[in-house]
Amino acid sequence: MDMLQQVIDKFKLNVLMIEDVPQSFSSSVYKIQLNDYRIVYIKIPYSKAKLELEFTVLKRFHYELPVPEILDYWEGNENVTGALLLSAIKGVPIREQVGTNLAYDIGVHHAILHSIVPNEQDYKSVVSNVYGQWSEFIRSHFYSFAEDVKEVIDPRLYEQSLKHFDRQLNLLPSPDGPSFIHMDFRPGNILVHENQVAGIIDFESVRIGATEMDFTKINRDIFMRYPGTRDSYQKGYESIRPLIDLQEVLPFYRFIDAFNSIGWCKRRGIEKHQTFLQENLAYLNRFLRIWDS
């Protein structure tokens, strides 16, 4: 709270009430009600790199997508990484069942994001450009979690995973891009109001890359849970831009997501994230059993 108070003082806010925002995994986020009853948000990323990236991307997307407006920015000091003061968007993260109408609108907004063409200034900015080395990026991303995963899962399953990854990586089609990709496009980062997308949040992991990685989490959290949503999403997406053949790439990227998520749980605390760990472990076992049969 001392860190938060420093930020409040820096932004000169007259605060009436403070609420923690849950499910924010790489930042501390607080909902602030001011004395005049306006709602704003304070976001304190865990690193200065994430702070600078979010600041840059929110400014870049301001006129392209429904994203929070930056009301103030503090670069931080030796004790605090820095902070963003953000406007509130009228909407809440997706927590309930997703129907076909909402899935269509999610597709529209995701396609709008992928349609933003990186310009010369973007390539000079803090946004990482991994498109030209896409296979190398996927490999590095996968193996960065491998040592963590190795400590958690059965050795045979671990070896199966590495062999499957190396074999399938070379069979991927040419990457679709270059595009801005969110890298954490999931229900918790999609705000809805009256069954429509009201905003997209959390741009700390944005890169210039290939679109196919960006479908992984909505496949896991929406398509695989709610029948009919994938078709509706596809119609919405294709009303803006062509969609790649998802069936050709989703199995591989879902496999990567399950593997990396196990490593993420190891890093963030196995006991705290036991349910998520078991879900991904079960999927990995099932996937490799079916694939190798």
Rank of each mutant, 00 (worst) to 15 (best):
G228R: 07
R207D: 04
F185W: 08
I218R: 08
E212Q: 14
F185P: 02
I201E: 01
P227V: 01
H182S: 11
V197C: 06
R186K: 14
F223L: 12
R207A: 01
E238R: 12
M224S: 15
R230D: 07
I208A: 09
I190E: 10
V192Q: 11
V192N: 03
R220H: 13
T229N: 03
M213H: 03
K217V: 01
F215A: 04
R207F: 12
G228P: 08
V197H: 05
G228Q: 11
R220P: 00
I201C: 01
T211F: 00
N195K: 13
N189S: 05
D184S: 11
R186Y: 05
I190H: 02
Q196F: 09
F203W: 13
K217I: 02
F180S: 07
I201G: 09
I181E: 01
H182V: 05
D202T: 03
L191K: 06
G199L: 01
F203A: 09
R220T: 13
H193P: 00
N219D: 15
Y233L: 10
G228D: 11
Q234P: 00
A198D: 11
D214I: 11
A210L: 05
D184P: 12
R207K: 15
G228S: 07
I222F: 10
I181H: 04
I190Q: 01
E212C: 10
R186E: 14
I181G: 03
S232I: 02
Q234N: 04
T229Q: 04
F180V: 06
E194L: 12
N219L: 02
E194G: 02
E194T: 00
E238Y: 05
P187A: 08
G209P: 07
F215M: 04
R186P: 04
I208Y: 07
T216C: 13
I218V: 15
I190W: 07
